[in-house]
Computed example of a mutant assay.
Amino acid sequence: MGNATHEGFWKDAKGNLVAPENVRESDKLADEVVRDLFAEAKNINAALVAFKQKALDDIRTHLALVVEKYDVKLRGKKGNRVLSTFDGSIKVTINIQDRIRFGEELVAAELLINECMAEWTHDANPNLRTIVEKAFQADSEGKISVYRVLDLLRLQIDDERWRKAMKAIQDSIRVIDSKEYVRIYTRDENGEYQALSLNIAQA
């Protein structure tokens, strides 16, 4: 049954073997429920992985045929594609999302920005200070938020040091890998596209 070894003992979270009579019935039942759900979830996950690959293959095949037959340029950014039904009621999109990290140039950017903040202490907008301070705050794992740092690039500040800092941020960006996302949308009664959830956490 569930966690029990062939000798009948149960292994706890620390790897210790526990006699079955010392395991609460509620824990045994919870173990069985979780293992059953995990087995089903693995099957669902495998089906989603297979569906994603099929969707990518089908769309790429279709686009390859279009280009070959009509010799036309595909619209949209590189890698991002949209296909829809003839009536526009359903659309499928492929989006490419790069995963990035920052190189050592980010240290220079932070130093330059700190110089600016020190000089602007009295005149700087408090909101600006908050944005800058949060951008370089590391989380519990020591990681800096990519989105907060990149948000600094949107600020238009007429200062040579600030411009150098923004250039340092741009130079620090390293693309680790790219991930493809397949999303399916259907029109609701108001004509708005609603995503069909393929994420168990959002279902």
Rank of each mutant, 00 (worst) to 15 (best):
F9E: 14
W10S: 09
K11V: 11
A13E: 00
G15Q: 07
N16Q: 07
L17W: 08
V18R: 03
V18E: 15
A19Q: 09
E21A: 10
V23L: 02
V23G: 01
K28G: 12
L29Q: 11
A30L: 10
D31I: 00
V34H: 07
D36E: 15
F38N: 10
K42Y: 08
N43I: 05
I44P: 00
A46C: 01
F51R: 03
F51N: 13
K52G: 07
K52T: 07
Q53A: 03
Q53R: 12
Q53G: 00
A55V: 01
L56A: 10
I59Y: 03
T61N: 06
H62P: 03
L65A: 08
V67K: 15
V67A: 12
E68L: 13
K69I: 04
K69L: 12
Y70M: 09
K73Y: 07
L74D: 00
R75M: 07
G79K: 06
N80S: 01
V82N: 02
V82H: 02
S84R: 13
D87P: 00
G88N: 06
S89K: 15
K91M: 10
N95G: 12
R99V: 11
R101Y: 11
R101L: 09
E105G: 06
L106I: 08
V107Y: 03
V107S: 08
A108Q: 14
E110Q: 08
L111A: 06
L112E: 01
E115P: 15
M117F: 06
M117T: 09
A118Q: 13
E119K: 15
W120T: 08
N125F: 05
N125S: 12
N125W: 08
P126L: 03
R129H: 05
T130L: 13
I131N: 07
F136E: 06
A138R: 03
A138T: 07
D139P: 00
